[in-house]
Nucleic acid binder design. Structure first.
Lengths: 293, 293
DNA sequence: CCGAGATATTAGAAAAAGTAACAAATGGAC
DNA sequence: GTCCATTTGTTACTTTTTCTAATATCTCGG
């Protein structure tokens, strides 16, 4: 292929629009630049090719024979490219919105609200990816990530979604009748924690407790933890928002809490978002206002 | 036309080459940039489109389904554009070299050397445009201008071609037996000068002579002036280089001279020159060395 | 487990493109 | 004719994009 030594493509595009509109001024409007920019692009292209493409003619311009010939080919070429891009865009636009989040968040927060979202935006399909892993946001992959971050290490420039106290929580049948007034006493209870994390021992460390005996920690996926805690299989460290009603009604016991230590925020990948993704983000923001616990 | 909102064209080109070569490294070589540049172009394109086009695969990459689809269209599109440009280039490359210069220079300097040039470069056709007017150098028009400039007002950054004393010259039969020892005495002789110029009165002014009677000045094209002067129809102000031999042999009389006042220089239009133009310029430079009078 | 060969990512340098302001040419209104 | 609106042409300067160089990361084969 020897089209590698193509002239400046932006100049070609500019000239193509000039040829189409028959005017620098109109072409500039179409391209959202000033006429000076278009004029310079075409001049540079002419210098590169060593041939005049358009000449002044009265109040406007007219193409030279060479210019007209080139314009024809450019039109066909760019149209081909445009069709290819368009087809791709259609595929992309219609792809479901890909969202990743922690299993706990999915079960306790998003899933309960999904029906409402679907009612509001029946045409948008959400694909959830509940995982504790941090998935990279790249084109063609995950569109939106809802992530948890300890508020002690705040992250700049992201949309907070849920700001909540973090609590250690357990079912009444598990904790009843015990003296749990100091952190160290929690070492005797079984902890449930997300696969691949180490929340229990971090919690003790943060409270100045150096474990003097082996902790009982069961690792399991976040979505199962919540039910297990409710059944009384163990205690866990999580957002109060997920258990607010149950705590108020006495169906769960809050053992310790850290004020506003937990923050869930929304992260999107770089670049422009598809309409469907924008709609989901808008809906998320609206939800966020109502749930700052 | 809605291909106005095409993605970044340079990104498309980069991706197209990546698709063709199947490698960022090879594509970078073809495009004469580093692989980092290609990588970034493709990444930006992916962000713009919101779709992955190529994914890492082992030690190299492979295209996604979307990438392969786009690559096909790009290939066709760029090929179309490339063909159009190529056709244009061929027309341009084969166009004769367009040279403009003063009629005097053409007749006295260039034409006598043309045969030699044609012998050296039989494939290159020169088109001469002998005119006193300053023709604009623009793409598709004049390629090379050989211009005269009074050396008192030097011009920067151009290739000098002929540096010569300027002389007032006449045929022996016209000037014989006259006392022409001071400038004012030249007012009695008929002057021949280029159409549209005013060399005669400028010469008198420069020599501090205020004409006290009407000058006899015949205007005619520069090429005719030289022959007319030889025939003895009048005197003129010109480069000594054009008459050097005749002066040495006494066939023409040098009346006055200004040391190195005249300079002919070569000017080319902006941008890269076609091979034929380059060859002509090279030849000109070689000639220049031999004729600094 | 190492090293060759590939892609990925950055900060900062270099190049390209765009803007604003003004100049120049033209055709029509008066 | 002169004036005026419209369009292209030009240039200094600013902004944006692109490229490079350095370095990190990943993968395969010995």
């Amino acid at each position: 292929m020897d089209w590698l030594k193509l002239p400046p493509l932006n100049g070609l595009r500019a000239f193509s629009v000039v040829a189409e509109t028959g005017s620098y001024t109109l072409a500039a409007q179409k391209l959202n630049v000033t006429h000076a920019a278009v004029s310079q692009q075409v001049r540079r292209l002419e210098e590169h090719l060593g041939v005049a493409l358009a000449v002044r003619s009265g109040r406007g311009i007219e193409l030279t024979a060479e210019g007209a010939s080139l314009a024809r080919d450019l039109d066909i070429g760019f149209a081909t490219i445009g069709r290819g891009v368009e087809r791709l865009t259609e595929i992309v636009e219609n792809r479901p919105v890909q969202v990743t989040m922690s299993p706990a968040f999915a079960v306790e927060w998003l899933l309960p609200r999904m029906a409402e979202f679907q009612h509001e935006y029946p045409d948008i399909t959400l694909m959830l990816n509940p995982t504790a892993e941090v998935v990279e946001l790249k084109p063609g992959g995950i569109d939106v990530a809802i992530r948890y971050r300890d508020k002690r290490r705040p992250v700049a420039g992201v949309q907070p979604l849920l700001l909540s106290d973090m609590v250690v929580i357990g079912a009444p049948e598990l904790v009843a009748g015990r003296d749990l007034s100091n952190p160290a006493s929690l070492m005797d209870l079984p902890w449930l924690q997300e696969l691949g994390t180490n929340e229990a021992s971090e919690w003790f460390t943060f409270h100045g407790v150096i474990p003097d005996r082996r902790l009982t920690v069961h690792h399991m996926p976040g979505n199962l933890i919540m039910d297990a805690v409710r059944r009384g299989d163990g205690i866990t460290y999580t957002s109060r928002a997920f258990f607010r009603e149950e705590i108020e009604q006495g169906r769960m016991i809050e053992l310790f809490s850290e004020k506003l230590f937990g923050i869930y925020f929304v992260e999107t990948r770089a670049g422009a978002q598809r309409p469907a993704v924008k709609a989901f983000l808008k809906w998320l923001r609206a939800q966020a206002e109502t749930v700052t616990v």
